[in-house]
């Protein structure tokens, strides 16, 4: 059974006078990896930040159109945006652990949502770290400062931190751009594994990465959705000339 998890309809985003996303509409498949690619400044990050409404926090940002998650419009007035962000986790471009211990980083989400404490919280921390393929590396030093981890480990910690609040969707904003190839490979393998359970959306400007890890690919250019489809067909026979130029490296 394949389902669409997210349905984006006529999404427009402005930052003051700057029209960043123009009439973007597409559906994102549940339990799959969807890559969003495009040249710098094309609106990739703005697009995923529209899915957990992080754009709302930017001064001068205006959004029109609808985003449905499981049939609920998240831009409805009565939506609880904190609950939305619990359901839609996010991993940032640069690893950004809190200046706390490894344990406290993962426990942060469950703590603020008051879903667990004590033994139960320990279990959530362990499960999340295992899911993020970090447990074996840190199990003996859970109370060390997270800043002592390597960049790749920090990024996996950030993934574990996002997983700890049991999200359904995980947004990743160029999660490997600050990492070396070995750490990148680990994160990519992790993304593949996570997609069995979660709906993963990965922003990348690395074409090979999009081809390697995603089931579906969207190509954005200057705020417009140029092409969207399963990754194989987007890369092998794109409909749009623009997409073809981009994936053959003629621009971008």
């Amino acid at each position: 059974m394949v389902n669409d998890k997210i349905d984006i309809r006529n999404l427009n985003v402005w930052f003051r006078d700057n029209h960043v996303l123009k009439d973007v509409s597409f559906k994102i498949r549940e339990n799959a990896v969807t890559a969003i690619m495009g040249p710098s400044g094309c609106g990739k990050t703005t697009l995923i930040r529209a899915i957990n409404r992080m754009n709302d926090l930017i001064y001068g940002c205006r959004t029109s159109g609808d985003v449905y998650i499981d049939g609920h419009n998240i831009y409805d007035g009565n939506i609880n945006v904190y609950e939305l962000r619990r359901k839609v986790g996010m991993v940032f471009q640069k690893p950004n652990p809190f200046p706390k211990s490894i344990y406290e980083n993962v426990a942060f989400g469950p703590r603020i949502h008051k879903v667990a404490s004590g033994r139960e919280l320990d279990e959530i921390v362990e499960r999340s770290l295992r899911e993020a393929a970090l447990w074996d590396e840190v199990k003996d030093r859970l109370h060390d400062n997270a800043f002592n981890l390597s960049g790749g480990q920090q990024q996996r910690l950030c993934i574990a931190r996002a997983l700890a609040v049991k999200p359904e969707i995980i947004l990743m904003d160029e999660p490997c751009s600050a990492l070396d190839p070995a750490a990148t490979a680990k994160i990519e393998a992790l993304i593949r594994r996570l997609s069995k359970k979660y709906t993963v959306i990965v922003v990348t400007h690395n074409l090979q990465q999009a081809a390697r890890i995603s089931d579906f690919t969207a190509f954005l250019y200057m705020g417009k959705l140029i092409e969207y489809g399963d990754t194989k067909s987007v890369f092998e026979n794109p409909h749009s000339e623009l997409t073809e130029k981009y994936i053959t490296g003629k621009f971008g």
Partner: peptide
């Protein structure tokens, strides 16, 4: 760094919670 607060907000923290638990300490 604003990234601390951003991370907390992305986990579903309210603005005050994000500020009081990451920025203030």
């Amino acid at each position: 760094p604003a990234s601390f607060k951003e991370a907390a907000l992305a986990l579903g923290a309210t603005r005050w919670k994000a500020i009081s638990s990451t920025t203030l300490p």
